[in-house]
Design a protein around this nucleic acid. Structure first.
Lengths: 185, 185
DNA sequence: TCCTGATGTCAACAGCCGTTGGCCAACAAT
DNA sequence: ATTGTTGGCCAACGGCTGTTGACATCAGGA
């Protein structure tokens, strides 16, 4: 174990800068040169650490939704808990751009869309299955995701005034009954 | 009035090719050269007809949602009518990519996001106001849009299997009660 | 006949991009 | 003292992009 201190630091700096750029501008508009400038190093270092722009992108796409264990909450409160967790996740730590990277890029980049589907299959679907039982989850998981991602899309990417104007509490109050309705369907 | 036949035709051909490219690949990945090749003309003609890539893009963003008059349907049937019209609009004529262009590009291109907000303000908001009355529309238009655009996002852009697996009827059955719930909220 | 305007082609420019390879300084081990 | 490794910079290549301007073609009016 030699001193890898500096190496790890710049690697992290590159990844942080890349996440910010990818989140703000999407894949095609962010350049290696800009990421390198943000991280205060030479563009060629980005290549040395990550191999290529695609691989850097891939590293930036790692996302953990940190979904709560929905099996623990009473069935009646699942919708509100879902919306609240989701909003807090987006509204919260602005340095945590991983989610934004994923959603913004997935719309134009097939590789990111693949990741999105993986995240969905590996994290969202099981969480819902734990809360609702397998059959109901299979029937409603798609529409539940559509509603939650629709919120993210209109509020954080498109920034529709009618959506950004709402407070987090408004969002919970307005969407929780909607989720409850599709779950009951 | 001289014979402008050829001019109008190539102009339309360029616009058609541009819409397809923008819809499939987004703004940054579509090149003037590719659009010109699709339209079977020289790249410089695109510039002559539209001035610049940005202006061509702007022309491609013209969208008419053709929302039905919701004032005519009974209040109880508004949610289902909304979802059905929306799904038919997307599912229908595949040559009509204008909506896809707008949504796909709005996520990474600020100019397109502006257009999206304009379309919302000029078409969606008034239609809802006619159906629900001004105060309720103001309160719920944002969340209704979020749910409808969430469907478009997950079904046509991200193509989440759990959403593409559903039939149009499933979508109406699953989302109409949800919309009704937020409208009642 | 000559001219003019529209329609279209061709070739090139300038800029930015991802990527590469060579060179340098510091430092640890031999 | 020499060697090898690590972390870093610099300059360049080749490719693709939007964009431009010079030229070709051809119809129709003076």
């Amino acid at each position: 174990m030699t001193e890898r201190r500096s190496s790890d630091q710049t690697r992290a700096a590159i990844l942080r800068a890349a996440r910010q750029r990818f989140a703000a501008q999407g894949y095609e508009r962010t350049t290696i040169r800009a990421v390198a400038a943000d991280a205060a190093i030479d563009p060629s270092m980005v290549m040395r650490y990550f191999g290529s722009k695609e691989q850097l992108f891939d590293a930036a796409l790692a996302v953990d939704l940190r979904l709560p264990d929905l099996g623990a909450v009473p069935a009646a409160e699942v919708p509100a808990a879902l919306v609240r967790h989701f909003v807090e996740r987006w509204e919260g730590d602005p340095a945590d751009d991983a989610l934004l990277v994923l959603l913004r890029s997935a719309v134009t980049h097939e590789q990111a869309a693949d990741r999105m589907r993986e995240v969905f299959a590996a994290q969202v679907a099981p969480a819902l299955a734990a809360a609702l039982g397998p059959e109901r989850a299979a029937r409603t998981a798609g529409l539940v995701s559509a509603q939650l991602l629709g919120l993210a899309l209109t509020r954080y990417l498109l920034r529709l005034p009618a959506v950004t104007a709402l407070s987090p509490d408004d969002l919970v109050a307005g969407l929780a009954p909607a989720l409850a309705a599709t779950l009951a369907g």
